[in-house]
Structures are given as C-alpha cells and as structure tokens.
Design a protein around this nucleic acid. Structure first.
Lengths: 236, 236
DNA sequence: GAGTGGTCTAGACCACCCT
DNA sequence: GGGTGGTCTAGACCACTCA
C-alpha cells in the first residue's frame, strides 16, 4: 500500500532518470560501484524487480556495467552507440514534406560479374536480375539505386513489375524479415552518378551498401548513391 | 514446480526465438495479430511477465507493434535500425591488432570563425581551443582529427597537455556522459587531408562530424577524416 | 465499457564469479 | 562459500484505446 513517501509513484523511469542524473552530474563518477539492487529498492521504496529493470536498461544503453557478484559499476568509458533508422526511401522523402517519384532506368537479366557471383555464391550459369533506379524528391534526383537480385532464391522477382514499384518496397513485402549488413562510405562519382545525379566525374558521393540474407541465402545487394551534400545523422 | 512439459526451461529467450522464427518463416505474416499475452503464456507454459518481456524486446527491435486494447501485430514494414558502436579511436585500432600512435599537429587558442561561434553560442570575445591531430595505425595515417573546444565551458582544456593524450580520450574522462549528435558524410579532400592523409586534392573522403553538449552547453565539435577506403559497417 | 498491454510487487531459485 | 545480478512466478492494479 505505502509506496514511496514522496508524491511520485515509484517507477523504473524515475529511477533511471535519477541514476542518470547522479552519473552525469558527477555524483557517481566513472568506475563507482553502485549500491546493490536491494539497497536501491529500499532507497526508492520499490521492489527489487523495478530497480533491476532500471539498471538493466541503463546497462544496455552503455552507461553501466553489471557483473554477478562484482556488482554494478559506472563504465569507465561509456559505450557509445549511435542508432540510425533506415526508412524506406519513399517514406524518407515524404516525411520531409516533398513529393516522391520513382523511375526504373535499366533492367537486365543475365550472368553476373565475378564480384557478384562471389557475393551470391551462385554458379556461373545462374542468373541475377540487375536494376538501376532513380528516386526523386520534388522533381530533383535524390538517390540512385544499383541493385542485384538473386533469381535462384527469389524467382518471383523475375516477373515482378519494377516499373512503378521500387525493388526495395517490393522486397520488403516479399521477404520482410531478413539479415542485413549495411555500410556507409565515400566514393568518387562514376558515369552513372554523373548522368543521373548530376555529379561531375570524380566528385565525392556519399554511398550506402547493403547486402541481405534470408535463411543463409544471399538475396540481394544494393548500392545507393545520394545526391550532393547528403549526410546520415543520429543522436545519442 | 511443473514448468513446461518439454525439456527446455521456459525463458524469454526461447520465446523470443520461437516468435521470431514464426515471423521470419512466414507463419505469422506482416500485419498478423498475435495471440494475447495470457494465451501465449499458456502455450509456452510460463507466466505472463515472461511473455511480456519477450514481446516488449521484439517490439523495441522493430519486429512487432504493440498497442493497448488493439493487441500485438507483426509490423507491416519492419522498422529498420542499424546500431553503430563508436569506439575510442585508439581502441578501434588496437582491436584490429595494429599499433596505435597519436600526434598533435597544431594547437591554437583564439577567437573563433563565425560558423563555430554560431555553433557554440559564444560571444565574439570568447575563445576556442583549436586542435589538429593525427591517429596512426601501424605507422600509417588512419584518421585526421580537427577539433574545437569551448574554453568557456571547459577551462581545464586550456592547460591540458594534448601532446601525448588525444583530446577525445581527455574529453571522455573529463565529461564522460554527454549528449552527442553524429553525422556521416562524404567530402572532397582539402589541404589538410592531402598533407596529413596522403589524399590527392578533391578525392572523396569519408568523414564523421560530432558535436557534444553537456547540461545545455556546447562543449566540443570535431570533424574526423578517415584514410582512403574507410567504411562504417553494421549488421541488423 | 471492456479488453489489451504496461507496470509493479513479493517472493523465490539459480548462475556466475569474486575472495 | 557466499554475495550479486538474472530470471521467473502469481497476482494485482492501472492506462490506454477500440468498439
């Protein structure tokens, strides 16, 4: 019945905030050993499970370090992690209040270059679908998409109509939950970026590369070139 | 006493895996309404709290969508999020098994350029510390660090010795827990990148920009230029 | 209004790992 | 060996939101 003494209800959120405050304001410096869960539960007038959730989440966020028997400590150097949300390109553009347009520039089916064959572990005879697409924001080129799709793993992609629906959206519907590796890098503008994004040859281009697997098979590999000045931003 | 019926102990991990399996293998397609927590608890032979933790974590990971009264659904388009760990540059290099070396190239205190004054909200008279440093991996230039530090907010930085300890490590110790905004971008190599990282003028450079606040004050702003070919990679 | 998830409690047992 | 966090349970009340 009696919960706290103060007006606030005991809650894992309040406890997280209070512990975060003590750490950021230096009350508990790097390396400090925190009181045990039972002790904190008494201090905050809540159950041990509530304290546990607070400390667990702060430890997942990289602020604290927990070990059985050793206790909970403030990390010496906080584990920094930035989380980037990867939206569908259409949603990204529309969220910015701009009009989205999609154009299929090229479509080809055939044997793959060596680099792609290695990535997809396909035999020389197997065919890949190669697509080149442009995504516009308010009529101006925004992103160029250079995609390879494994037709052995995704035969339906061979007959899908990519002239109106982008391959990314198609894939998300066909294979929604898959393993992904994503990279960010800088590259010199090649002929395609010059022609479709208006770059001068050799200009720096911000690029994303993504490879997608499902049940151990490589499904698709895509290289996304962004328009001049694009950046990926996150807070933490 | 009786827990499960099967040999496995009921655990939120097993439940997560099983639900993930049902979703990825298409048993529960996008938009599917999952059974309620109580129903799942009966199925898995565990308590509702255990089911709740499983579903909560899957929803935080972007796979599921939960609303009171409406229930738990498989997301139509999975919420994609990539998590990048941001290590100290020294740890990044040493983790790759290479030797780390740090060099302070320039140090200057003075009035700031307009762009920096805006960022730091300083008055014209206030001074900023400007540092240029290089981080080497196995003797080869790896990263160039161009940093501004707000001396009004961090007066100790004015007397710190940055000739042996990099400003990043110094800052992490002085102000461990702060707010950060980080961006990734591509830029043409300027004179500094050419001189210290061996770029040809105008070559594409992968860059990170980071601004750090603490208690509402802008503490520091840094631009990191990486050696040729660098990429940031994450899996999800 | 009623059904669902969100959270808290009190208690329990266990696994890990420091001393 | 013993103390700490890791997890589970059974029950409860609450808040949101859909019909």
């Amino acid at each position: 019945m009696m919960t706290n003494g103060s007006l606030e209800r005991a809650s894992f959120r309040h406890i997280k905030e209070e512990i975060l405050r003590r750490v950021t304001q230096g009350e508990w410096g790097p390396g400090t050993l925190l009181p045990g869960e039972i002790e904190l539960a008494v201090e905050f007038g809540c159950s041990r499970a509530t304290v546990n959730r607070s400390l667990r989440e702060l430890s997942e966020a990289g602020l604290l370090e927990r070990r059985r028997k050793a206790g909970t400590r403030v990390r010496l150097t906080p584990l920094r992690q930035a989380r980037f949300e990867i939206p569908l390109i259409r949603e990204e553009i529309e969220a910015a209040g701009a009009a989205y347009r999609y154009t299929l520039l090229q479509r080809a089916v055939g044997p793959a270059p060596v680099a792609m064959r290695k990535l997809f572990h396909t035999r020389p005879r197997e065919r890949l679908l190669h697509l080149l697409c442009r995504h516009d924001s308010d009529g101006a080129p925004y992103q160029l998409e250079d995609r390879w799709i494994n037709l052995a793993a995704l035969p339906q992609a061979g007959t899908a109509d990519f002239s109106t629906l982008g391959p990314n959206e198609w894939l998300v519907r066909a294979v929604p939950y898959s393993q992904v590796e994503i990279s960010f890098l800088a590259e010199a503008a090649g002929p395609a970026a010059c022609e479709h994004l208006g770059y001068a040859s050799g200009e720096p281009v911000f690029m994303t590369e993504r490879t997608t697997w499902w049940e151990g098979q490589t499904l698709t590999h895509v290289r996304l070139a962004y328009r001049r000045g694009h950046r990926m931003t996150a807070r933490y």
